[in-house]
Amino acid sequence: MIKVLAPGLFTTVQDTGRFGYRNKGVPVSGAMDSFSAVLANRLLNNDDGAALLEITMTGPELEFTAPTHIVITGARIRPAINQTLIPNNRVIRIHPSDVLSFGKPERGIRAYMAIKGGFGTPVVLKSRSLYFPVTAYDHLKKGQELGHEAFEGTVDELIEIKVNNDFLFGSSIPVYPGPEYDMLNAEEKEMLGRGFSVSTLNNRMAYQLEEQLPPNDYGIITSGTLPGTVQLTPSGRLIVLMKDCQTTGGYPRILQLSEQGICALAQKKYGDRIVFTMC
């Protein structure tokens, strides 16, 4: 069992996502940075889809009551066990009464904490990913307890690896042309390559960008959307849908982020610059 002493800014349980229910309007959800989430589970010999914690900006404070092993991946947010800093991408042995805490973000904004065997939180529509109102709550609360299986053995895994995850923290966001890309004129297509800044309006549902294209009268019949779909509003605003996004929309879908692009954007905060790079 893990006791949540402090929940952090927005700490949530995620897995690879909730599939098969988009026709009922249920978002996919799942880890925003799937690269880092899968890496954390693989370092522990967990299934890729084992439930883990997604930690955003300000990390939680967690007290362990049973022995286990953990791994932290993704953003560097100065994780520490009993106030002693621990590295990312390394299997860490945990003893009862150990306390995990975090400091200020140094690189990126989303870290992932996997635990041996994964978290045993409730399964709702074939997934443990938190998304209110599909689940009873959407992020951890102070005083909450998280279940997991105690593990006193050893992890038959590399103790430490050197991970090339620089793509997560660079400005390049790989994209493909969206279904309505050719609605754009030559000038608008050229503007897409100039770079954009992340606005204050960014979360698990969508990222809005500061710079805009010219106002337009483009329109489409409401159509399907996916995580990574870039929508163009009549005002010229660009909205990049993320893992908790709606399943349909009426704005032109001018670009589609690759999975790598979604992971990289998930590590960006307000003011960070991005450049769409056509695949």
Rank of each mutant, 00 (worst) to 15 (best):
G224C: 03
G224D: 00
G224P: 02
G224S: 10
G224L: 01
G224V: 00
G224E: 01
T225A: 09
T225Q: 02
T225D: 02
L226V: 14
L226C: 12
L226W: 02
L226Q: 08
L226K: 05
P227I: 01
P227N: 03
P227M: 01
P227W: 00
G228Y: 00
G228L: 00
T229D: 03
T229A: 10
V230F: 01
Q231F: 09
Q231C: 10
Q231Y: 07
Q231M: 10
Q231G: 07
Q231L: 10
Q231H: 08
L232A: 04
L232W: 05
L232D: 02
L232V: 08
T233V: 14
T233A: 15
P234V: 13
P234A: 09
P234M: 12
P234H: 11
S235P: 10
S235Y: 14
S235G: 11
S235L: 09
S235C: 11
S235D: 15
S235K: 13
G236H: 13
G236T: 07
G236E: 12
G236R: 10
R237N: 15
R237S: 14
R237V: 13
R237T: 14
R237F: 15
R237D: 12
L238A: 15
L238V: 11
L238G: 07
L238C: 15
I239D: 01
I239E: 01
I239A: 02
I239C: 04
I239Y: 04
V240S: 04
V240W: 03
V240H: 06
V240Y: 04
L241S: 06
L241F: 10
L241V: 09
M242L: 12
M242W: 00
M242H: 07
M242S: 11
K243Y: 05
K243Q: 13
K243V: 10
D244F: 01
C245M: 07
C245F: 14
Q246L: 13
T247F: 03
T247E: 01
T247V: 07
T247D: 02
T247L: 04
T247Q: 03
T247K: 02
T248S: 11
T248R: 04
G249F: 07
G249S: 09
G249Y: 04
G249P: 08
G250C: 08
G250I: 14
Y251N: 06
Y251M: 08
Y251F: 15
P252M: 10
P252T: 10
P252R: 05
P252L: 09
P252D: 15
R253M: 13
R253Q: 11
R253V: 05
R253K: 12
I254E: 07
I254M: 08
I254R: 06
I254W: 06
L255V: 11
L255C: 11
